[in-house]
């Protein structure tokens, strides 16, 4: 059986977990077994709808304390459930919680572990999964040699593949170990779309000349319903908050559309964004290396091009 760990927040299942479920259903089909989901904690989200991504059953350990991430506790609970359910593959989204939990679960299950998987496994002569390495500059094919496999899959690499199906929700009991951490404060930026979950990202670099010029970028992002990001020099100069920095030493993202404004496209920046499906580059320097990695390019002054693009999108929305 393929067991998929489901992450939820703010009474919603995370898109990355829906995608992991969909990937899990495909892995289960390859192996000729069922795909089932595991939900820890309490949520108002309609977890039976995980059926739409291919889950036949949703195992639910509805204990409030599991809503917070205590890696020692939650990984123990997940590993215990996986053993009880006889899972041969345990899947996570390669998001913040998945990155913290999956390796610990792998240890507890004595399972081989691959994180950042970007393809379905090949199951002839082994169990081979492709993952991104060198921060997106290459892929490696890894064979997992253990009977149980734990895999964390990259966000936005497989997509959602909805079907008509409702999963059966099964309440599951678990012995919850004593907490190992105490959460004393949670601060969230209100109304901002998390970068790693965004379908569209609009990003700015030094070409915008100063933080006071970010208005045109924010207007474009608002019109597209996009999250905003920036290059490393911009975050190092405190023009934008550190959590917006994408690149090799910042966040690695893979949106459907990445619009780079005034970013030259140094190799370290490309490593963070080159898994984006479509890349649009706006730069006044026709020699900017980013154009080589782009799908669409506009050689021109951002201060003219960006407002014109925002207006064109607005116009096209109105004519729909």
């Amino acid at each position: 059986m393929v067991l998929v760990y489901i992450d939820h927040e703010d009474q919603q299942i995370k898109t990355s977990s829906l995608e992991a479920m969909s990937y899990g259903a495909a892995v289960a089909k390859l192996l000729g077994v069922s795909a089932e989901a595991l939900v820890l904690g309490t949520t108002q989200a309609s977890i039976k709808d995980l059926g739409k991504q291919g889950a036949t059953k949703v195992h639910h350990i509805a204990v409030d304390s599991l809503n917070m991430l205590d890696v020692k506790v939650n990984s123990t609970v997940i590993a215990h459930a996986a053993t009880q359910l006889n899972a041969s593959v345990v899947l996570f989204a390669h998001n913040i919680n998945g990155k913290a939990l999956a390796p610990a679960v792998a240890i507890k299950l004595k399972a081989g572990f691959v994180s950042g998987a970007s393809s379905l496994p090949e199951i002839e002569n082994g169990f081979k999964v492709t993952k991104t390495v060198f921060s997106g500059k290459a892929f490696a094919k890894i064979n997992i040699a253990t009977p149980i496999k734990v895999i964390a899959i990259n966000q936005n690499c497989y997509g959602l593949h909805p079907i008509e199906n409702v999963a059966e929700v099964v309440a599951m009991q678990s012995n919850i170990p004593a907490p190992s951490i105490k959460v004393t404060e949670v601060e969230k930026v209100k109304g901002e779309l998390p970068l790693t979950e965004a379908n569209i990202v609009v990003s700015g670099g030094r070409g915008l000349k100063g933080p006071e010029n970010w208005g045109i970028l924010l207007d474009l992002a608002k019109e597209l319903g996009a999250a905003t990001a920036c290059s490393r020099p911009v975050s190092d100069s405190d023009w934008r908050p550190h959590h917006e920095h994408v690149g090799q030493t910042g966040l690695q993202i893979a949106p459907n559309l990445y619009i780079a404004i005034g970013i030259s496209g140094a190799i370290q920046h490309l490593a963070g964004v080159n898994r984006s499906k479509t890349i649009v580059v706006i730069n006044k320097d026709p020699e900017a290396p980013f154009f080589k990695a782009a799908d669409y390019g506009i050689v021109g002054d951002a201060f003219e091009v960006v407002p014109a693009l925002t207006a064109a999108i607005k116009k096209s929305r109105q004519s729909e």
Binding site: G136, I279, G297
Partner: peptide, 17 residues
């Protein structure tokens, strides 16, 4: 528990439009 079999580079972009 795992072995790296081989590597590949991402496919080159078609060229910018």
């Amino acid at each position: 528990s795992t072995q790296v079999l081989d590597f590949e580079l991402p496919p080159a972009k078609q060229g910018v439009k």
